[in-house]
């Protein structure tokens, strides 16, 4: 499959960069103090999640790998959008399956989030079948 070895922190230190393009070796106390490394550098990246998905899959953990792959699509998605989607997925929040399907289209077109979109469409169908699109408050 690949030469990926764990921990990725050690094996892929050269390959991985932070959200602002710095190397892992740049994440030193000195750089934090100097302000050249900021809070934004300490978030996970799409690439790291895909590497972790690979590690999980090699360890026969398919579902964990799929979760990391879905997560890789949310790295660039703002918190507010994530909470909107979470809210829509709760029972009775969306008025119809169309609302979820529309959100799926949006995630696909704006963020290229195909796995997330498929996941939302799957939820829409399940909710429809189980009559979840009803008012709760």
């Amino acid at each position: 499959m690949s030469d990926i070895s764990y921990p990725v922190m050690d094996s892929a230190a050269d390959k991985l960069t932070t959200a602002t393009g710095k190397k892992l070796s740049d994440l030193t106390l000195e750089n934090v103090l100097a302000g050249t490394v900021t809070a934004a550098d300490f978030s996970i990246t799409r690439e790291a999640l895909l590497l972790q998905a690979e590690v999980a899959r090699l360890a026969s953990r398919r579902t964990l790998a799929e979760n990391f792959e879905r997560a890789s699509e949310l790295v660039g998605v703002p918190n507010e959008t994530i909470f909107e989607i979470y809210e829509l997925l709760r029972p009775g929040r969306a008025a119809s399956a169309d609302v979820l399907k529309e959100r799926a289209r949006h995630m696909r077109s704006v963020y290229g989030a195909n796995r997330i979109a498929t996941f939302l469409e799957e939820a829409a169908a399940a909710y429809e079948r189980r009559s979840l699109f009803r008012r709760r408050y």
Partner: peptide, 10 residues
């Protein structure tokens, strides 16, 4: 630093 590579997610 952990979260940049995500090893702790395994």
């Amino acid at each position: 630093r952990l979260r940049v590579a995500g090893d702790h997610l395994q």
